[in-house]
Simulated scan of single mutants.
Amino acid sequence: MNFEHVVIVNEPENPLLIDLSREQLWFGLLCRAENPRPFLPGLEHCVIVERDDTTLVRDLHFGDTVIRDHVTLEPMEAVTFRSEATEHHAGGSLRISIEEPSVAQLVLRFHYRTTLAERISDPDSPYVEFVKSAYHASDIDTVRVIRMIAESEISH
């Protein structure tokens, strides 16, 4: 399954939204890479097993299930998470990129690639819309958590 959508971060016409800078968005994405617990419900802990300037290898512990993923950082632009396939997890990838479609408007683009099939004839097809909806809700929550991080940084 390929699934892509955007979540609006800054909307100049909406005075109820406090604008975030690209730097604040990037810092929030780095937080998701370094400490994903606030972003991933059910995650008990994360161990970073390797790192260099632009990559992390992490073990994500969900109870007895451990998912290894590889995080690639493109500073101020995007973060890509690629999880390895195991007997308990199908594997896949998520790329989150910061985009600026117009002056003062920022969005995050979420692009998922999974092994879940979208063809009607496939046995997984009834779950596709449910999974897309869950991803979208999770991504809105990601922006909410990034806003909380930015607000806490401002107040300190």
Rank of each mutant, 00 (worst) to 15 (best):
S93M: 10
K132P: 09
Y135K: 08
E129A: 14
D69R: 02
V66I: 15
H88N: 14
I8P: 05
S133K: 08
A134G: 07
R37T: 15
S155R: 12
T54P: 00
L30D: 06
F130P: 00
H156D: 09
A78E: 09
L25Q: 02
E153N: 13
R32L: 11
S125T: 09
L17M: 14
L43Y: 03
L108F: 03
L40T: 03
D19V: 00
E87M: 13
V143L: 04
E84Y: 09
V145D: 05
S102W: 06
G42E: 05
E100D: 12
R32D: 07
F110Q: 04
E118A: 14
S93W: 03
D19S: 15
V131K: 12
E118H: 07
V145H: 01
L29D: 06
M1G: 14
D19K: 12
V7L: 05
R32Y: 07
N10H: 04
P36D: 00
R37G: 05
F81W: 10
L116S: 09
V71P: 02
S152I: 01
G92V: 03
R68H: 03
E153P: 00
C31E: 13
R32E: 11
E84R: 13
S83Q: 03
G92L: 01
L30Y: 02
E74T: 15
E118I: 08
L106Y: 08
A134Q: 10
R82W: 08
S21N: 06
S125L: 05
T142P: 07
E84F: 12
P75S: 09
D52K: 04
R113D: 11
A104E: 15
D64F: 09
H61P: 01
V128D: 00
T54I: 14
H45T: 03
P75W: 03
E151R: 09
P15K: 11
V143Q: 05
R147V: 02
S152R: 12
E99A: 10
P123Y: 06
E151P: 00
C46R: 04
F39K: 03
V145A: 02
I146N: 07
P15F: 07
Y127V: 08
V57H: 04
M148K: 10
N10W: 01
G91H: 02
E44M: 13
I149A: 07
S102K: 13
H70K: 14
R22P: 06
Y135N: 12
Y112L: 07
S133F: 05
G28T: 04
I18E: 15
P36R: 01
A150M: 02
S102C: 09
A90T: 12
V103D: 13
Y112C: 04
H45S: 09
H156S: 08
